[in-house]
Amino acid sequence: MRLVFTSLASHGHLYPLMPLAVAARAAGHHVVFATAEDFHPVLEKAGLEPAKAGLTIHEAFASQFSGDPGRRRREVPEEVLNETIGRVFGRVLPERFLADLGALFEQDRPDLVVYEVGNSGGAFAARKAGLPAMGHGFGRVSADGLMMEIHGALDDYAAELGITGGDRPSWGNPFVDICPPSVQSPEFLARARRLPLRPVGWSEPADLPAGVANRDRSRPLVYLTLGTTPMSQSHVLTAAITGLAALDADVLVATGPAVDVAALGEVPANVRLEAWVPQSELLPHVDLVVHHGGSGTTMGAFAAGAPQLVLPQGADQFTNAEAVVTAGVGERLLGDEVTAEAVREKARRLLADPAVADAVRGLAAEVAGMPSPEEVAAQLPDYA
């Protein structure tokens, strides 16, 4: 069977699809993964055949801002920025993916298209070509905040294309759902044609930081990350590092590409800074995850059985933080609540609270009971 997987070109959008794509290839299917060229080396390392489609998210935003796009995005009013985000994800990216995938499908017609649900251009291209398709989620389905701007733009574009029927984000197609049902949106659960898939983390192959794998488990290890999305977040990292360093624990910080490490200054001896870590390999070794609320980190911590302190910065991170709190597996700090003292006290409680530990174990058991990538890959021919 010939499969085309397609995703927006970012870690958070592409990586959730990798376990199923790799499992489908291992099952003997011909798998092509269509995304922007920046991520083709990652796909080739995983043994997948890349195809060029779409723009990177950075390129899409740069097309909307003249001059320095990063500077302009920081300067524009929030309502203008929100409109631009809606236009980028609701029109610019889908339009480009629709054109590129349409050409790809004419050249080599697949039996099934698996599109990451942030990439509605994949759904539209499959519909226009008359191909069977299924969406693939990357976490909890949200319709709050910025998603309303995106959905409005998507509805307008879909209407122009003559595409009707089916609710977002699945557009009426089956939906591969990696979110545990107990924390998924109840409204989505009630209407979707779900194909559950265990959230299995995927990272580019790399060694764990020295000392992690064989460390003394009697001393807690706290992992701090604000993800890989370029945004100004040094002040949040600084507050979190200061608070966590005051604990009787070791702190491993993945600073990400947007942070000037020098701006963080000297860090205490129990804090280690790394530009990047293989997160899926790391999470089973940590005792607490302090993070931005990205879906990959949230789902990964669920699976690894680690409590979470969420410091959401934007997009779906706020609803992910709410889900963490509601499930009893962590806490959150919003906006000006993020101080060193608040981070320290929240983290201290999460490391010691037996009720949180029980909830974390229960959610990890729920995740472990979901179908594996190999089991779901075996079902894909039924949808072709």
Rank of each mutant, 00 (worst) to 15 (best):
D316Q: 09
V290W: 00
E374S: 15
R198I: 03
G362L: 08
E187V: 08
M299A: 14
A158K: 10
D260S: 10
D68H: 05
R349D: 00
G296W: 03
P307M: 14
D336Q: 02
A53D: 00
H30N: 14
L3T: 07
A306L: 11
P196N: 03
A303T: 14
L98K: 02
V88G: 11
E78P: 01
P50T: 12
V325H: 03
V259Q: 09
P180C: 07
R332K: 09
H292S: 10
D100T: 00
F97H: 04
N119P: 08
G137T: 14
S203E: 04
A125H: 03
P278S: 00
L81A: 03
V253I: 10
Q107G: 14
N214S: 15
R332C: 09
D260Y: 06
L333W: 01
R193I: 09
P174D: 08
L48H: 12
P94K: 07
G162L: 06
A51W: 01
I57H: 03
G139D: 04
S142G: 04
T238Y: 08
L112P: 04
Y223I: 11
V42G: 03
A239F: 08
D287I: 05
G293A: 04
G330A: 10
Q379S: 12
N82Q: 02
V253G: 09
T319A: 07
R215C: 11
E322C: 01
D216K: 05
V290R: 00
F33Q: 06
T326M: 15
V329D: 14
E337D: 12
L208P: 02
G47Q: 13
L363P: 10
E59L: 06
E59F: 09
E149T: 12
H13S: 14
D38K: 15
C179L: 10
A364H: 08
G122Y: 07
N270A: 12
V251T: 10
R198V: 00
E366P: 01
R25G: 04
D155W: 05
F188C: 08
A26T: 03
F5L: 08
V324L: 11
E83Q: 13
N270Y: 10
Q64P: 05
P77K: 10
R25C: 02
P268A: 09
E341K: 14
P110Y: 07
D382H: 11
A315I: 13
G314Y: 07
K45D: 12
A153R: 06
V290H: 02
F89P: 01
V200P: 01
D156I: 02
F89E: 04
A53T: 02
L350H: 01
G328V: 14
